[in-house]
Amino acid sequence: MHIMEGFLPHPWWEIWYVISMGIVAYGVYRLSRVTKKLPEAKPLLALMGAFIFVLSALKLPSVTGSCSHPTGSGLAAVIFGPAIASVLSMIALLFQALLLAHGGLTTLGANTFSMGIVGPVVAYLIWVVCRKARLPTSAGIFLAATLGDLFTYVTTSAQLALVFPTAAGFFDAFLKFGAIFAITQIPLAIGEGILAIFLFDFLAKYKGQLLAAIKVISLPITAHEQEGKE
């Protein structure tokens, strides 16, 4: 989903920067509130950042015969809320822009928007809907992480189609970019969903009380938390 350095002309890169930085600023505020209220949540924050670091470094093969990478930001959104996931995503994107020439400084705003805002918001909403529908926790986590990942790439496709419409218009370009990005991403997104289940199951078992105390997530804690009492 990285839009390469220099591939968003004026005024697009500024527009995405303004939108993203506003939300990242709110995320920093949320972050400082959570860590002040619950200092014991700091290692969990590091863990969520680490999950994003690992997943966004893994370039995986897909059935389309090309490679791409998952994002990891959906799980952070479910546990800490989408705004904090935005901050963590931007850190990973900045690392890749500076050290790997992957993505870029001028496209950081746009890439933060897709991976750090749309993906996490989608993941969070899916999670809420799954909880309301009383689906099993694993199903909720899986769908949230998978669809958050997928929609990150759908967003990138739309961002590029806005700037580079074909002769047939925005929608035609959107389908063309989407065919490369989103189709490749489907198996990877499923893989991310599975990894998210693993980490979440561990957290629910060992950190159930902390998850509940953050108050973003409402777990069907009964069984888990009893197990997780320290």
Binding site: H2, M4, C67, I180, G191
Partner: peptide
């Protein structure tokens, strides 16, 4: 992540980016 190599063994596996 193994299936892709079975379906299209001769693909280039370049980056989607």
């Amino acid at each position: 992540f193994i299936v892709p190599f079975i379906i299209s063994p001769s693909a280039e596996y370049g980056g989607a980016d």
